[in-house]
Amino acid sequence: MSKKRGLKFYLSIYRKILIQDLKSKMSYRADFVISTIGMIMTNLAGFITFIVLFHNFPTINGWDLNHMLFLYGFSLLALTPVQCFFDNNWNLRTHVYSGDFIKYCFRPVNIFFYFMSEVFDVKGLGQLAFGLGTLIYAWAKIGIPVTFLTVGQALVFTFTASLFMIAIMNVAAATCFWIQGSGYVMVIMFRFKDFARYPASIFNSVFKAIFTFIIPIAFVAYYPSLVFLQPDNVPVLTWLSPLIGLVFFFLSYAFWMLGVRKYDFTGS
């Protein structure tokens, strides 16, 4: 990049691209409705599984239904940004193999930014609504106080928690710059998001370490939620999670851009 541009410049570009994308989506209205129903159904199915489980067992590892619902709602919220804003990662593979990707390299804006801004996934909003509803319900049932501090913490921690899944998906998508048939990598990584809704305390130490530092899904909901669920006993990792999130995101971005540079060099 030749010049450094401000946030304002990028926001205005994002708005313009977003409007174009929404316009083209509006021409497939039936698809939008059915996809949204599908999204709500998957969330509902996860919800039903929870209810059935707790119908038989009152607590799991010391977590009762409301605490688990809090975790569930929190994970849905933290997974919304990756669904809404970074959905184009799923198309990266196709663009790279077909050679279309070269068009992004010629734009005078950040490639990562431009590529991601091209798609805004509307059905993620259904997930947002569902997650928000679940979280508020659990929040009220548990009786977490509503103060400036707790609401502020909730905003900061959901935002930073969302960075982890974005980072995972960036890395998974960027593998296509090196290996063929990387679609499987993305599918598997995406399946990991379902792990995020369970307390990481159910794992033994080996898997807990794996899901904390290698595939950081424990940070998507478990660690940040402890701020609200165990306010007297918050682990250090929780307080560090915003910082770790930024590090993970930056590393995934660097990896993604490394792939782009490699793509440039092959000149295909």
Binding site: S35, G38, A45, T49
Partner: peptide
């Protein structure tokens, strides 16, 4: 043409009601 939507609805219904995600006995 909404393949993704139709497919996800089918998959969800089948998985929950067939006992694949939680045994029906529960």
């Amino acid at each position: 043409e909404s393949t993704w939507g139709i497919n996800i609805v089918k998959e969800t219904i089948v998985l929950v009601l067939s006992g694949a995600s939680i045994p029906l006995a529960f």
